[in-house]
Simulated assay, not measured.
Amino acid sequence: MTMQLTGNTIFITGGSSGIGRGLAEAFHKRGNQVIIAGRRAALMEEVTAANPGMAAIVMDIADPASIAAAADRLMRDYPNLDVLVNNAGIMPFDDASAPIDDAMAQRLIATNLLGPIRMTSALIEHLKQRPRATILYNTSVLAYVPLAMTAVYSATKAALHSYALSQRFMLRDTAVTVQEIAPPWVDTDLVRKSGDSRAMPLDAFIAETMAGLGTEAPEILVESARPLRDNPGAEEHALVHGFNLSLVENPIPVDG
């Protein structure tokens, strides 16, 4: 079933910056009722002020109680909610050749994996009652070709991709569609907005992604992401080695 790009009530986690804000504004411009969520109230107020009619809910995606409270408010104040965009995520760097900071790893898993699972679980019965609904997961091409210096992050995205595949199957006889976007390196502040020529400009990514969301494709890929998505099976080890070696030789800018 094709997702309608207009006339929806859409909840977007992590909607105050980066890809989340880009998607929120693109949907808002198409006449959808958009509600964004995030931890930083001031930043969300800035986004909603720039987009009259857009709403915001303060929520911590890593906190189950915060998710439950947000879900209750959504079902009370926005009973026509029919699209959930699981976008919120964090991307700290790590070193899998050394001891991993346990608090960091737990925070990453709670945010990037358990957060979307819990958020969807809180809304799934509501969404199943809608005439048509969509659950959208923002994963990453790093789900298929991990970035070694973000080993835990890459693993959470691989796990979320797997979860989306299972959920899509389990919802096959309902009116709920599960879609996934797997961005390449997009020039946002997830790491550091740098203008690096290897990073896809945010506006170009959003435009190509919105076009894809209007199709029946279960997974929306911009063209620049396809080579990494087409991870060549038995050649995976060589591909991952070469991908990471290229980034060691030309590092991602992470400092100011």
Results as ranks from 00 to 15, higher is better:
122 A>M: 04
122 A>F: 00
126 H>L: 02
126 H>Y: 03
127 L>K: 06
127 L>I: 06
128 K>T: 05
129 Q>L: 04
130 R>W: 01
131 P>C: 05
131 P>M: 05
133 A>V: 09
134 T>N: 10
135 I>T: 04
137 Y>T: 12
138 N>H: 09
142 L>V: 14
143 A>R: 11
144 Y>V: 03
144 Y>C: 03
144 Y>N: 10
145 V>C: 15
145 V>A: 14
145 V>P: 09
145 V>N: 12
146 P>E: 05
146 P>R: 05
148 A>H: 08
149 M>K: 15
152 V>I: 15
152 V>H: 03
153 Y>R: 07
153 Y>M: 08
154 S>Q: 08
154 S>P: 08
155 A>M: 13
155 A>W: 07
155 A>H: 08
156 T>C: 05
156 T>F: 04
157 K>M: 05
157 K>D: 03
157 K>N: 05
160 L>W: 09
162 S>I: 05
162 S>T: 15
162 S>M: 13
162 S>V: 06
163 Y>K: 04
164 A>R: 11
164 A>Q: 12
166 S>C: 14
167 Q>G: 00
169 F>K: 15
170 M>I: 09
170 M>K: 14
171 L>K: 09
172 R>W: 02
172 R>V: 01
172 R>Y: 01
173 D>I: 07
175 A>F: 03
176 V>H: 04
177 T>P: 05
177 T>F: 09
178 V>F: 06
178 V>I: 14
179 Q>E: 09
180 E>Y: 01
180 E>T: 13
181 I>K: 01
181 I>Q: 03
182 A>N: 10
182 A>K: 02
185 W>A: 15
185 W>Q: 11
186 V>N: 02
187 D>Y: 07
190 L>F: 08
190 L>V: 14
190 L>D: 09
191 V>E: 13
193 K>P: 00
196 D>P: 00
197 S>W: 07
197 S>K: 14
198 R>T: 10
201 P>C: 00
201 P>F: 00
203 D>E: 15
204 A>M: 12
204 A>I: 04
205 F>D: 11
206 I>S: 02
206 I>W: 01
208 E>Q: 14
209 T>V: 12
210 M>Y: 02
211 A>T: 13
211 A>V: 11
213 L>Q: 08
213 L>S: 09
216 E>W: 02
217 A>V: 03
217 A>S: 13
217 A>I: 02
217 A>T: 07
219 E>D: 11
219 E>H: 12
220 I>C: 07
222 V>Y: 02
